[in-house]
Amino acid sequence: MLVEAKTLSKTYKIGWFKKRLVRAIEQADISVNKGETVGVVGESGSGKSTLGLLLTGLLKPDGGQIFFNGEDIASLKAGQRAAYRRQAQIIFQHPETAFNPKWKLIRSLAEPYYLHKIPFSEESLFRRLAEVGLYVEHLARYPFQLSGGELQRAAIARVMVLEPEFIVLDEPTSMLDAITQAQIIGLLQEIQKEKGVAYLFISHDLDLAGVFCQRVYRLKEGKLQLT
């Protein structure tokens, strides 16, 4: 078991004057094995994205536990936490907001190297680019000069620099057309075959989740159910 969450809960407080509680995730149990693709489908507002943020450590749960490789991540010390953050990555729905618009692509792609103190070399960056089907010429472009599909590939390349074991894919193809979608899914499958990464695929598309995932959970009003 790579990732396991037990009785996970998250509540948001919303409203300025009158505080109101919204239960985004309620008592959710979910597990992802090494090298597996697990789907989570639900409508907008059902708490899908919250689940992704919780499992990658970008949000703190109000209740429940998350185990990564058998360790409770709440008990991790600062140094171990950084290692976990490196191992659990996320790719978002809107690639255009995932890149700094003022940076050329090369700067965005080089960032994980120094953030995580990985020795930087041009060859290793070019190799990552080639893996996702981008070319060196793309590196000199700004995000607005790339298409949605190209940007999503760049986001995948940036994540793969860290060689994570677990990637949350938060609706990575919902803004893309059918052919680009099939290309991105194909690319993700190839990477999985080669590196053995596990995916949590968040989507509202049941058809797509059915083809891409080994197991699919349905999220409804904060509650998870295996279909």
């Binding site: 059918a178 052919i179 099939a182 290309q183 194909g186 058809d207 797509l208 059915g210």
Partner: peptide, 15 residues
């Protein structure tokens, strides 16, 4: 190719 790329029809990408 457009139709073959649909998830329900095989999700075959066009290179």
């Amino acid at each position: 190719a457009l139709l073959a790329a649909l998830p329900a029809r095989g999700l075959i990408p066009l290179p």
